[in-house]
């Protein structure tokens, strides 16, 4: 436990001293800001007509300016945007050891590789969950500031489950990003993996088997494509859990067994 605590301290320090947390927070906060902007546009159709492309997009995505629509867009942004932003964070946490050539410094230590990898996953989970909560909280502030109708405590409860549930499901799929960063020994393979899974998730959803494709599940869970009960089943959550377990196991195994030549 002492060694895990040390590894967690080290990973936290590395994250804290870099600019990536700030950049990711600013970047991800745009989801709530843009969501609020859509609501402003939708509240005033006359102004919307004068705003060209943004107005058209806002009409396509939403339609009405109210809290259900606001939460719907936020959930979708966290599910899809999170797949990219969270992947960037994971790629950075794992891939930087190769880019900075520091990987060789933690392979022959009393602290096991397993403890270090666990610490990395804990930091990624805390960081991405923190970002999700930040964006959700910011969304509530912006929604209130824009003063859209349709608020209720029930809606808040169900939307919290939709939005943060989508975030948790997205986070559960990050071990494969960590595996891609480890196997590819750097950032780029992990970015490639993230983009590939986002694209495949869209295809899977369109073809109607998104409930079986782990990377399509978070967006479907957010309620963006319709009522969750019609789109997903228990098996959908199970495939996400299975993907998470497989990703974790493969990442740990790789760090234990792979030759480290960098």
């Amino acid at each position: 436990m002492k060694y895990f605590t040390s590894a967690l301290w080290a990973e936290t320090l590395k994250a804290r001293c870099s600019k990536v947390p700030l950049i990711s927070a600013i970047g991800f906060s745009l989801a709530a800001v843009v969501d609020g902007l859509f609501m402003i546009i939708l509240k005033d159709p006359e102004a919307a007509k004068q705003m060209g492309l943004i107005s058209t997009k806002a009409q396509l995505m939403a339609g009405v300016a109210d809290w259900p629509t606001f939460f719907n867009i936020l959930g979708q942004a966290i599910a899809v945007g999170g797949a990219i932003v969270f992947a960037v964070i994971t790629a950075w946490v794992f891939g930087r050891e190769f880019s900075d050539r520091t990987v060789k410094e933690f392979l022959a230590l009393p602290t096991s590789r397993g403890a270090i990898i666990t610490a990395k996953f804990v930091v990624v989970a805390a960081w991405t969950m923190g970002l999700s909560l930040l964006v959700f909280g910011l969304g509530l502030v912006i929604g209130n500031a824009v003063d859209i109708p349709g608020w209720s405590q029930d809606l808040l409860r169900s939307s919290t489950v939709d939005v943060l549930g989508a975030a948790v499901l997205t986070i559960l799929l990050l071990p494969f990003v960590a595996l891609a960063a480890s196997l590819g020994r750097g950032y780029l393979p992990a970015f490639g993996w993230a983009i590939l899974t986002v694209a495949l998730a869209q295809i899977a959803a369109v073809m109607g088997w998104g409930d079986w494709f782990p990377w399509a599940v978070p967006a479907l869970f957010s309620g963006a494509a319709g009522p969750r009960a019609e789109l997903l089943g228990l098996h959908s959550l199970m495939v996400v859990g299975l993907a998470c377990a497989l990703g974790l196991a493969a990442t740990y195994l790789w760090w234990q067994k792979a030759d480290q030549t960098r």
Partner: peptide, 28 residues
């Protein structure tokens, strides 16, 4: 065992002291 393998490396965002502090803790 202490080691130095190939070219030295360190976390560029961290100070010399912080880099060594990480090593101290990982050595328990």
């Amino acid at each position: 065992v202490g080691h130095l393998v190939e070219s030295p490396s360190a976390y560029p965002d961290l100070t010399t002291r912080e880099n060594l502090e990480i090593s101290r803790r990982l050595h328990g």
